[in-house]
Simulated scan of single mutants.
Amino acid sequence: MQLVVGRIGRAHGIRGDVTVEVRTDEPELRLAPGAVLLTDPPSAGPLTVESGRVHSGRLLLRFAGVGDRNAAEALRNTVLIAEVDPAELPDDPDEYYDHQLVGLDVVLRDGTRVGEVSEVVHLPYQDLLSVTTGDGREVLVPFVERIVPEIDLEEQRAVIDPPPGLIDPDRAETAGSDAGQE
């Protein structure tokens, strides 16, 4: 199984360091020295992490064989991909790898089917589940416990409790007009 773990940003300094936009909850594991990463585009890699450090809140990595600023700049926008054993699970029981979530049936608390998780979108402050509904629409569901109270990997389903209008935009207008009435 492959996981996207980062994207290379601009070069930093003259010795081949690059900034990395981290896209994993486990950078200390996935982006550690010695880690071998596949790349997109494939022609850029594989890349082996030689060293890493945090500088001014940004992760800086140096890859084996990338010894100067020009070589580092040539890697800009390259996506970093880690190979992960599909049986491997995160240490925290409330965390999930993307491949565990993609394909799950999405249902409301009462069991009504909403659709299927098609992608996990990682944003700086919050992850979203991209759900393809039965009628083909894409709905972005914030992946927070209040809205997604249950992930059941054995049953292959995600139970959601969405606020009015998240799944059905028509409900938002009704809920909004009812809110002001006593």
Rank of each mutant, 00 (worst) to 15 (best):
E155S: 13
R58P: 02
I147R: 07
M1P: 10
V121N: 05
V159E: 03
D127G: 14
T48W: 06
D110L: 03
D105V: 09
E173Q: 09
T78C: 02
L123S: 13
Y96M: 06
L104S: 03
I81T: 05
G13S: 06
R30S: 11
L166V: 00
I147S: 01
D105A: 15
T132G: 03
L108C: 00
F143K: 08
V106L: 04
V106A: 10
I167W: 01
L129P: 00
L3G: 00
G65F: 03
T174K: 12
F143S: 04
R171W: 04
Q181D: 12
S130Q: 12
G57D: 04
L38T: 11
T112D: 03
G111A: 04
L60I: 06
D135P: 01
H55N: 14
A71E: 13
T132Q: 14
R109Y: 06
F63N: 08
V107M: 08
H12G: 05
G180S: 10
V148Q: 10
I8L: 12
V36C: 08
R157N: 04
R113N: 09
R10L: 08
G180P: 00
R137G: 08
Q2P: 04
V102R: 06
S177N: 11
E182S: 13
Y96I: 06
E21Y: 10
R15C: 02
L101D: 07
V22Q: 10
G180H: 02
V36G: 09
P164C: 06
T133G: 04
V120F: 01
E28K: 13
R53A: 12
R146A: 15
P33L: 02
E155W: 03
D110Y: 00
E116H: 05
S56L: 15
I160S: 08
P162K: 01
R30C: 11
Y125W: 13
P27D: 06
P86T: 02
T132E: 15
Q181R: 14
Q100F: 05
L80P: 08
L129R: 02
D152T: 11
R137M: 07
L47G: 03
Q156C: 10
V144I: 15
P169S: 06
E173F: 12
G45P: 10
D94W: 13
V107I: 14
D17L: 15
I8W: 05
P41G: 12
Q126H: 11
G67D: 14
G136L: 02
R58N: 15
A32L: 06
A35K: 11
L104Q: 07
V49C: 02
V120Y: 05
V66Y: 04
G115M: 01
I8V: 14
G115H: 09
L128V: 06
P90I: 07
D40E: 15
I147D: 05
V159K: 09
S118M: 03
V106S: 10
A179W: 08
V144G: 11
D170G: 07
V4M: 14
L31K: 06
I160N: 05
